[in-house]
């Protein structure tokens, strides 16, 4: 049964690759415009062995992790405060409601002036795009906890801090992880965009350089790496969430 479900997911991917390879080999378009799958894989190998891919990936990964870490920690901390204390919620809600709709990349020109064109630019952009989904999902998770369960914990002797750590946060985990998974995908999109615009190193920058050299195979390799990274991040958080909520959800 498990093998069958795995096959159901893999067969379409294999079919797509075969179709891609076949179309490319028909030579309807020049190879430098539409390279075959095997040519892309060959380039992938070259980029990996030469270290170019790894170097650029590491730069992007560092920015994503830094921005993501700061953004999610800040989102969770502020979300807890806003979810637990109505006064904080009422005070901060208007500001965040005004800032949230601004696309993260919309901050780029301002940040270029304020922090310059360096590693901090994509990190701050990722921070901005990470912060809000985690913030709002944390608030939703906390506010969604059954009030009777909180009362029960109090009558059983739990202080406010113990209620938060032993009841509210564990029950808000599914919502918090929804936010983390959302922002993980967003973080990669933002880092690539920022690198394309302003940063000389990273997957986005490599794509821009490849574009100017008409290296479609390299661009496709970069897209594959991005897809793999987004997929890995999503699966990682899915796994952690499952470990934390297995059994009771």
């Amino acid at each position: 049964m498990k093998l069958r479900s795995v096959m159901v997911g893999i067969v379409p991917v294999i079919a797509l690759i075969i179709m891609w390879e076949s179309i490319a080999r028909l030579n309807l378009l020049p190879g430098y415009i539409f390279p075959s799958f095997s040519a892309v894989m060959e380039e992938f190998y070259h980029l990996a062995v030469s270290g170019v891919l790894f170097e650029n990936l590491l730069s992007s990964l560092f920015r994503v992790l830094a921005g993501f870490l700061f953004g999610s920690v800040a989102g969770i901390v502020v979300g807890i405060e806003m979810g637990c204390k109505e006064i904080v919620n009422r005070a901060l809600h208007p500001i965040f409601s005004l800032l949230y709709p601004i696309p993260a990349l919309g901050w780029a020109p301002l940040l270029m002036i304020w922090v310059g064109i360096n590693d901090m630019l994509p990190i701050i952009l990722i921070f901005l795009c990470s912060f809000f989904p985690v913030l709002y999902n944390t608030i939703t998770g906390i506010k969604g906890v059954d009030g009777n369960v909180i009362k029960a914990a109090k009558t059983l002797g739990a202080s406010d801090g113990e209620v938060l750590t032993t009841v509210i946060l564990p029950l808000a985990v599914p919502n918090i992880f929804t936010g983390l998974r959302l922002e993980a995908g967003m973080a990669w999109r933002v880092v690539v965009a920022a690198e394309m615009v302003a940063i000389p190193m990273g997957i986005g920058a490599l794509m821009m350089k490849s574009e100017s050299l008409l290296r479609v195979d390299v661009i496709i390799v970069c897209l594959m790496v991005l897809s793999l990274m987004c997929f890995s991040f999503d699966r990682f958080f899915q796994y952690i969430e499952k470990r934390l909520t297995d059994g009771w959800r």
């Binding site: 009777n148 009558t155 202080s159 113990e162």
Partner: peptide
């Protein structure tokens, strides 16, 4: 509440 030494069985039980 947590210092009143109360045992409260809620109507909806409120199990964790």
């Amino acid at each position: 509440t947590n210092e009143r030494r109360i045992g409260y069985l809620f109507q909806n039980l409120a199990l964790f």
